[in-house]
């Protein structure tokens, strides 16, 4: 036997895909053994399939069942009036409608005919239990003034301190030059030095004598 029964059955049902279908057809043409087996399977299929319930046997049941469904379901549904009809409304919708209704009703009862001045009587007031005098603002850093860090001083305070110490400080922002110097400058020339001697081009905060724990007198809190 060259072709197995499963392939032959699949071929018989017209479910064998190409190129196998053509190959099986060709094979059946010259292989008597496979052809005989195919014929047996074809007859089996025909016998099984042809013993089916036929149209004439089905027809009376088809009419009977249809009549039953039409009488008990299809026609009954038509007669249902508007009042008896089933309305399907989702639960959230019902709740939302109820809530809105209560809100509107409550509002109507509460505020009906009341002057604006008496509203205070209706609306419950929330009284605070704390006395205004007993509230004291507490700053956690207040008692620790001596331990201020360098970052907590503003630039102005630092400059004030340095000025008091006798330093002359020139503050510049990198990449930005005073307007006057740009106008006088030729392109690609080194910037001209200003008359006032500058200790450092940028403010070197680390080099300043300001030390933590030595707050200046001028720096107020």
């Amino acid at each position: 036997m060259c072709l197995d029964d499963q392939i032959l059955n699949t071929y018989l049902d017209g479910e064998l895909a190409e190129p196998w279908r053509t190959q099986v057809a060709e094979h059946l043409n010259y292989c008597p053994a496979c052809n005989a087996r195919y014929e047996q399977l074809r007859i089996l299929h025909k016998v099984v399939s042809s013993s089916r319930l036929n149209e004439e046997e089905i027809a009376p049941y088809q009419q009977k069942v249809l009549k039953f469904i039409e009488n008990n379901y299809v026609n009954k549904r038509k007669k249902i009036g508007f009042i008896h009809r089933n309305f399907r409304v989702s639960m959230p919708m019902v709740l939302a409608t109820a809530a809105a209704f209560v809100f509107v009703l409550a509002g109507a009862f509460l505020f009906q005919g009341k002057p604006a001045g008496t509203l205070g009587e209706i609306i419950p007031q929330v009284a605070s239990s704390t006395q205004p005098g007993s509230v004291v603002q507490v700053r956690t850093t207040e008692g620790l003034a001596s331990s201020r860090f360098l970052e907590s001083y503003s630039l102005e305070e630092i400059l004030q301190y340095l000025d008091a110490k006798g330093y002359e400080v020139d503050v510049r922002i990198k990449g930005i030059k005073p307007v006057g110097t740009i106008l006088n400058q030729a392109p690609f020339k080194a910037p001209e030095k200003t008359d006032t001697p500058v200790a450092n081009e940028d403010v070197d905060l680390e080099a300043s004598p300001l030390e933590p724990g030595q707050p200046s007198e001028g720096t107020a809190e």
């Binding site: 089916r52 149209e55 089905i58 049941y61």
Partner: peptide, 27 residues
């Protein structure tokens, strides 16, 4: 209907039972 009647019949092999099954399915 003819198809489901055949299916019901060839599984149960009883016409009355098949009728009930088909009726139930269509309802």
């Amino acid at each position: 209907f003819p198809i489901v009647m055949r299916v019901a019949y060839h599984v149960t092999y009883n016409m009355d039972v098949s009728e009930d099954i088909c009726q139930e399915a269509f309802i």
